[in-house]
Design a protein around this nucleic acid. Structure first.
Length: 288
DNA sequence: CACTTGACCTGTCCGC
DNA sequence: TGCGGACAGGTCAAGT
């Protein structure tokens, strides 16, 4: 569920909380979550400092002073949570923080030399944190094929139209979810941007009018930025780097609102399956 | 080759 | 209350 705004919010939190910290130890539970050899970790991680925190699509990059980089993907339920020495008691204003760490969902733990910790928690074990030599990061199979960043200056209407023109037969929702076209849109923001653009999620791209294309092009950065200003969307598994929750879903237009009234016209929001994903839309505002 | 589908996991919620 | 089944979405390998 972490999509671009959630991952970017985590990135900003990590930049504030762990930039410059020196790694004293690491611990991990499964080879899948952290596939590197112990020898490699000992040599390039222990004693190294975090020099930069970058985001590409939904992936995070923790650059180290050793010229190695952790490529971290949260996938569905991954969380990166920093804990200092402070412990919050019940009833404290920060009681929205998830509980004591590490817990049974902890996959990786980084301990810094000031005795604070960064935890990578992942209930469903889809995510990973892998160590790569920094010059090889851009060659990673996932990163190398990622599409345009929708909040960058490279995402122009001309570029968007060119991408659409290359997939005339595809339905628009599957296109939006394809990270090789545009990087960072997931199920929530695909549904929300299609609602704002008034486009049916199953509409084939060749059937989308020039006006609708422009509305969709405008809606994508609009909705991503709106969510970003709210600190990302919230579900029971998404959490900030400091352990607090986001708020966006509380005012989603269609996502997760099946059966509820459309905020535009009052028609009940429908839920269908498109590209194997739950898909929410208003059949009146988003005609086929 | 472009695209679609099922698998990967585990916790939660709903109906019986 | 317990239990089975649907559901949650990001990406990749396998299939069309």
């Amino acid at each position: 569920m972490p999509e671009l705004p959630e991952v970017e919010t985590v990135r900003q939190g990590l930049e504030r909380l762990v930039l410059g910290k020196k790694i004293a130890a690491t611990h991990h539970d499964t080879a899948k979550a952290f596939p590197n050899a112990a020898q490699e970790v000992q040599e390039f991680v222990i004693g190294a400092c975090i020099t930069a925190v970058e985001r590409r699509g939904k992936a995070l990059l923790l650059h180290l002073s050793s010229d190695y980089t952790f490529l971290i993907h949260l996938r569905m339920t991954g969380q990166l949570v920093y804990r200092g020495e402070v412990s919050y008691g019940a009833g404290h204003p920060n009681d929205s923080l998830i509980g004591k760490l590490p817990d049974k969902s902890t996959r990786v733990e980084w301990r810094f030399d000031d005795q604070t910790h960064l935890f990578f928690n992942d209930q469903r074990k889809f995510g990973y944190a892998k160590l790569l030599a920094t010059p090889l990061v851009t060659q990673d199979r996932f990163l190398a094929t990622l599409g345009v960043e929708p909040l960058s200056s490279a995402f122009t209407f001309a570029a968007f139209e060119q991408l659409l023109a290359a997939s005339p037969q595809r339905n628009i929702k599957a296109f939006l979810l394809d990270q090789k076209k545009i990087a960072g849109i997931g199920n929530i923001y695909a549904d929300e941007s299609l609602f704002l653009a008034g486009i049916h999620p199953q509409l084939r791209i060749e059937k989308i009018s020039p006006q609708q294309r422009k509305r969709l092009f405008d809606a994508i950065p609009f909705i991503l930025n709106l969510s970003l200003t709210q600190g990302g969307s919230s579900s029971h598994t998404y959490i900030h780097a400091d352990g607090k929750k986001g708020t966006y879903l509380s005012f989603a237009h269609v996502y997760s609102r099946a059966g509820e009234d459309c905020k535009n016209c009052g028609t009940p929001i429908k839920r269908i399956v498109v590209a194997s994903r739950g898909t929410h839309y208003c059949e009146r505002c988003q005609p086929r």
